[in-house]
């Protein structure tokens, strides 16, 4: 069994109004050293595979087919064996 921790975020070239607004709110709270902030999504997926390469291939496919929209988003993930 593997646990995939998948992070999806907007590409650097795509404007992130949500991230900007959150950064402004943090600024108002006194966090005045924030240089930039990008909002994203996080998924934890447990996968019933016992071969790392097979699990990795599946996660890659999940990300490109559904979890991320390649037009505007990028993704990365960690894959760890779990019991």
């Amino acid at each position: 069994m593997f646990l995939a921790r998948i992070r999806v975020s907007l590409k650097p070239t795509v404007n992130d109004p949500q991230g900007k607004t959150i950064a402004q709110a943090l600024g108002r709270l006194g966090f005045d050293t924030i240089d930039s902030l990008r909002a994203g999504k996080y998924f934890e997926v447990r996968i019933d595979e016992y071969d790392r390469a097979a699990a990795e291939k599946k996660v890659q496919a999940m990300c490109t087919q559904l979890l991320a929209n390649p037009v505007i988003e990028r993704f990365d993930f960690d894959l760890d064996p779990v019991s």
Binding site: N15, P17, Q18, T21, N69, V71
Partner: peptide, 17 residues
């Protein structure tokens, strides 16, 4: 249609939220 790839691009959150 954009998600399905029948049209180019994507629709994201309005600039002013």
């Amino acid at each position: 249609l954009c998600e399905a790839g029948l049209l180019p691009g994507a629709l994201v959150r309005n600039e002013h939220l």
